[in-house]
Nucleic acid binder design. Structure first.
Lengths: 204, 204
DNA sequence: CAACATATTTAACTAAATGTATGATAAACA
DNA sequence: TGTTTATCATACATTTAGTTAAATATGTTG
């Protein structure tokens, strides 16, 4: 119970530090985000101008500059939003005991998150920024994995844990990108089955 | 024999179409390439201006525009150069019979290539463009793998070949990036041993 | 080596996009 | 309701991109 309150207070503190008090700020920020997503469907991020983003969002350009110094800051902010979102999606995974099950369930949650925000992730790929997608998945997944301290002690082989983790996360991410890019070629279930087959029990 | 001549003539035709006859062109192009590499060590690619590249190369800006329409074209040209380079490095791999040996040797050649051009690849990572590195490795490796047609028929499981290939190439690329980013933490031999352990015989 | 072809330089210029500043207006907050 | 502050409208300085044309320098070819 105390832990819960502690958690809550931290969240409130973070929100407070972010200074997102004023509704107007939240409103414009969301408008800028959705504008960015929409534009990234048709253009690469480099081609998108600050003026484009503002026009699409019906927001004055000087307002944009009162929030961000340039479009790259907007992108970083947007990506962090996605990361936090994904991280909390993965939290449902906390009380799975078996390690292999944990990994498969994590990938399951990952795919569900991405499918629920397919527009956004597809826009990221379209805008020629696949490295963003890779960054998001790997960073968030590593954070989640690091919560399960035991893992680092379990693996019996000669391969260091960080290498092991990067190996399989790179593999999974690569498949996810293939899944997104090939649109309707594979279902979410297909991908999950393939990964279940490809990730060995040895990991446990 | 005829096929050989046909191949040769195509190569000659390509070289002719590239119009790289004049030494001056080769010279400036190389200057632009090395200038780009040098700048990417300190700045992200977005931050680098056409004028910066020209100053560093002691080349007039209008000369730049007689070669490329923008800096992105220069980057593409540079990347293609790297791809061709890597592809011919991998050719030593042609007459290996055993499939697992082929993969390990391919990774070996890959690591040797990257180590011999460590400056360049490290610059690419520094300039916040890891997706370039991923593109290069995956595209070239897939080309090389596709030469060995048999592979597509060999795998016994339910996982489609393209998924299988993307899975392990994603994994290997992820490790290579980790290897480069962690500078001196692992030797080339370490990485090769780890990957040898992680890539299953099942593939064969 | 001389004649020719063409790549590079120099310099000026247009257009577009960035980033800043200020006072007026509108909306949120307490 | 009064105060605070985010947004708007506008104007302006600066940077970068990309084009053009004539003079110069450097490779190519017979």
């Amino acid at each position: 119970m105390f832990t819960f309150l502690k958690k809550l207070s931290i969240i409130i503190l973070v929100k407070f530090m972010e200074k997102k008090k004023d509704l107007r700020i939240i409103k414009t920020q969301n408008l800028l985000f959705t504008s960015l997503i929409k534009l990234m469907k048709d253009k690469s991020f480099e081609e998108i101008k600050v003026a484009d983003i503002c026009n699409e969002a019906y927001i004055n350009r000087s307002t944009f500059y009162s929030h961000y110094n340039d479009k790259y800051e907007l992108l970083v902010d947007f990506i962090n939003e996605l990361k936090n979102n994904l991280l909390s999606s993965l939290e449902k995974n906390e009380n799975i005991v078996n390690t292999k099950d944990y990994y498969i369930e994590m990938i399951h949650l990952l795919l569900e998150h991405i499918e629920s925000k397919k527009d956004i992730y597809f826009s990221i790929l379209k805008s020629n920024r696949s490295s963003i997608l890779i960054d998001i998945i790997i960073e968030v997944a590593v954070k989640d994995i690091n919560k399960r301290i035991e893992i680092s002690n379990i693996h019996k082989g000669n391969v260091p844990t960080d290498i092991l983790v990067k190996f399989y996360l790179g593999a999974v991410t690569s498949i996810i990108i293939e899944w997104l890019e090939s649109k309707n070629k594979y279902t979410k279930k297909d991908i999950l089955n393939y990964l279940d087959e490809l990730i060995p029990e040895i990991l446990v």
